[in-house]
Simulated assay, not measured.
Amino acid sequence: MTFHRTSRVAFLVAIAVAATALSVTPSLAFSSEAQQMCTGDAMRLCGHEVPNVQRITACMARNRAHVSPGCRAVMEREHAARKRAAAAAE
């Protein structure tokens, strides 16, 4: 895999991981912590879905129980923060 393709794949995976962690549609708003902690899990569990961000997101949600403890912690923390923000906006 070329460097450019590897970078693109890592970027797409990071977007999907963050979308899953934040329980929102894929966007460019993701934490660097989620990218750092979850990219390896996303590649291991959902690399076969690249480059389809929606399918990576769905795959990560399905495999949430199989992610590393660090990734799971980030996903849970960011999901809780998103829920608090949504509740405060109501």
Score class of each variant (00 low, 15 high):
Ser32Pro: 02
Val24Leu: 04
Ala18Trp: 02
Val67Leu: 06
Met1Glu: 11
Ile56Met: 02
Ser31Val: 01
Val53Pro: 05
Cys38Phe: 08
Val17Glu: 09
Met37Trp: 03
Ala16His: 14
Thr25Gly: 04
Ala58Ile: 14
Thr39Pro: 01
Ala65Gln: 09
Met43Pro: 00
Met37Ile: 05
Glu33Met: 06
Cys71Ile: 13
Ala73Gln: 09
Ala61Phe: 08
Phe11Val: 12
Phe30Met: 01
Ser31Pro: 00
Arg64Ser: 12
His4Ile: 03
Arg84Val: 06
Ser31Cys: 02
Ala80Gln: 14
Glu33Val: 10
Met37Gly: 02
Ala58Leu: 15
Pro51Thr: 09
Thr57Cys: 01
Ala58His: 13
Val13Lys: 11
Val9Lys: 07
His4Leu: 03
Val17Arg: 08
Ala89Pro: 07
Leu28Gly: 04
Ser68Tyr: 06
Val17Asn: 09
Glu78Leu: 05
His48Gln: 06
Ala14His: 09
Arg84Tyr: 06
Ala34Pro: 02
Arg55Val: 07
Arg44Ile: 01
Cys46Val: 06
Gly70Gln: 15
Ser27Cys: 01
Met75Ala: 14
Met1His: 12
Cys38Met: 07
Gln54Met: 14
His66Glu: 00
Val24Gly: 01
Cys46Lys: 04
Leu12Arg: 15
Gln36His: 10
Ala87Phe: 12
Val17Asp: 07
His48Leu: 03
Gly47Ile: 05
Arg72Gln: 14
Val24Ala: 04
Gly70Leu: 15
Val50Asp: 09
Ala85Val: 14
Val74Gln: 05
Gly47Pro: 02
His4Arg: 04
Pro26Lys: 02
Ala85Asn: 14
Arg77Ile: 11
Arg64Glu: 13
Asp41Ile: 04
Ala86Lys: 08
Ala14Ile: 10
Ser23Cys: 12
Pro69Ile: 10
Gly70His: 15
Glu76Phe: 04
Ala86Cys: 01
Met43Arg: 07
Arg8Gln: 05
Ala61Ile: 08
Ala34Met: 08
Lys83Thr: 11
Glu90Tyr: 12
Ala65Glu: 12
Ala73Gly: 03
His48Trp: 05
Thr20Pro: 00
Arg8Asp: 02
Arg55Met: 11
Ser68Cys: 03
Val17Tyr: 06
Pro26Asn: 00
Ser27Lys: 00
His66Ala: 00
Arg84Asp: 06
Gln36Asp: 05
Ala87Pro: 04
Met37Asn: 09
Thr6Cys: 01
Gly47His: 02
Ser32Cys: 01
Arg64Val: 14
Ala85Asp: 14
Ile56Glu: 00
Ser27Gly: 05
Leu45Ala: 09
Met75Val: 13
Gln36Ser: 07
Ser32Val: 07
Ala16Glu: 13
Gln35Gly: 07
Val50Ser: 12
Gly40Asn: 06
Ala19Asn: 11
Ala16Ser: 14
Ala42Cys: 12
Ser7Trp: 12
Arg55Tyr: 09
Val53Gln: 10
Ala29Val: 12
Cys59Ser: 03
Ser23His: 13
His48Tyr: 05
Arg77Asp: 15
Gly40Ala: 07
Ala42Arg: 09
Thr20Ser: 01
Ser23Ala: 15
Ala10Ile: 11
Arg77Gln: 15
Arg77Asn: 15
Glu49Ala: 06
Arg72Asp: 13
Thr6Tyr: 04
Arg44Thr: 02
Thr2Phe: 14
Phe30Tyr: 07
Leu45Glu: 03
Ala14Tyr: 10
Ala88Leu: 15
Ala88Pro: 10
Pro26Met: 01
Cys38Leu: 10
Arg64Asp: 11
